[in-house]
Computed example of a mutant assay.
Amino acid sequence: MDGGAVTLFLCGDVMLGRGVDQILPRPGSPELREDHVRDARTYVRLAESVHGPVPAPVDPSWPWGEALRWLERYAPDVRIVNLETSVTRSDAFAPGKAIHYRMHPANLPALTVARPDVCVLANNHVLDFGRPGLEETLDSLERAGLRAAGAGRSPAEACAPVAVPVPADGRVLVFALGARSAGVPSAWAATPRAAGVAHLPELSADTAAAVVRHVRETRRPGDLAVVSVHWGSNWGYRVPRDQIRFARLLVDGGVDLVHGHSSHHPRPVEVYRDRLVLYGCGDFIDDYEGISGYEEYRDDLRIAYLVTVERDTGRLAGLRMLPLRARRLRLEPAPDEDRVWLRTVLDRISDGVHIALDTDGTLALGQPAATPRTGTGP
């Protein structure tokens, strides 16, 4: 932390289950019940078919690769990830789902190695093995010293923010919500009798007002408020109007940062009333290498977001984006041409925001566009 500012690391979906789990030291059962794949090790072979042999077992740090070195270099004050997998030994596959993600609890060192302060669980894979699987996930994270937001054993626990202390008696409050538009069913909502997620039934003005009330009731002077939302479709750059309106209503109500995820690739960046809105951070760790389709979105490229916020005002003080590339189920530095490609795309789709390529190879906010465009994304 530099003076009166706090720097946060944020990323999109961290999917340490399925194929990634299989190369870690303590893989769980490889059984799957997908239409075309019945063994999780198939995803390892797909990755190998395009990028070469993947060692196994790997050190727990392997999936994070170069991201860990950058985290050490930039030393963010708070680290927030969307953990999009259940952490369970269960074989009770949730019915009616095409894809199920799980990692063995013994492989949690592959998460703790990144030292996340907050693991967001309000997403569409955390109940892939039912409510017992979610309870085991919560227990496993707690035993590992990790804090979860967006899921719990009751509605109050699921909706409660994680409060991360920062120097000078401040806190960063992280609230997490899972929207129906991202495939989070209403049946997954936490109830007084059953564990579940903090469910967002609709992106309406009334729902935004309820979130704002909850933030205001919880925060105290000196707190920064982050709302992490799993929403929207997997592909495409266009952000629906209801997401834009919802994010802006949150900021109007006092939220300092909106952390959106679910899309498999980065979506537009917006600065609204001097607050940052990330509409889609894209995947960060997964086992998608070798799967064809949607190549135009370059979902092999990943971004680590470093967001600096003024402590006293909540205003955005800086944004640095670290470009990475997935190879052999590991993150490596993105080549120069890929950094340029990411910069060009983000600059094109982000209304009123200019993305610059810095001399160190990272992406950053440049001077605002002379005439802000209307809408977000093409």
Rank of each mutant, 00 (worst) to 15 (best):
M15Q: 13
F175V: 06
A158M: 07
P116V: 10
F93M: 01
R275M: 04
D351A: 15
D59T: 06
P30D: 14
A225K: 03
H265I: 04
S262R: 13
G28L: 07
F175N: 01
P167Q: 03
F9K: 01
R45W: 02
A98S: 15
Y74F: 14
F246L: 03
D91Q: 14
E270I: 06
A67R: 08
V58Q: 10
A198S: 14
T359P: 01
V353Y: 08
V87Y: 01
I303P: 08
E157C: 00
E296G: 02
D312W: 02
A114Y: 09
F246I: 06
M103Y: 06
A151I: 13
G4L: 04
P27H: 10
V269M: 14
D360P: 01
V212R: 11
R216K: 11
H354R: 15
R115A: 11
R18Y: 05
P155T: 10
R69P: 00
K97A: 03
C159W: 05
D252G: 01
V87D: 00
T85W: 13
A182P: 02
R339P: 05
G17I: 06
V251T: 09
P95A: 11
V212D: 09
L249K: 09
P266C: 13
D338N: 06
L249F: 00
T344A: 15
R320G: 01
P266A: 14
V277L: 11
D347V: 11
G236P: 10
L322F: 15
L138N: 09
G28S: 05
A149T: 09
G236C: 04
L177D: 00
L10G: 05
L319Q: 12
G178F: 15
Q367G: 00
R267K: 15
R69E: 12
P155N: 10
R45C: 00
V307G: 01
E34Q: 04
E84N: 06
E135F: 06
F284L: 13
L319I: 04
G96W: 11
H354F: 07
E310Q: 13
P368L: 02
A148G: 05
D13E: 15
G196V: 01
R328G: 04
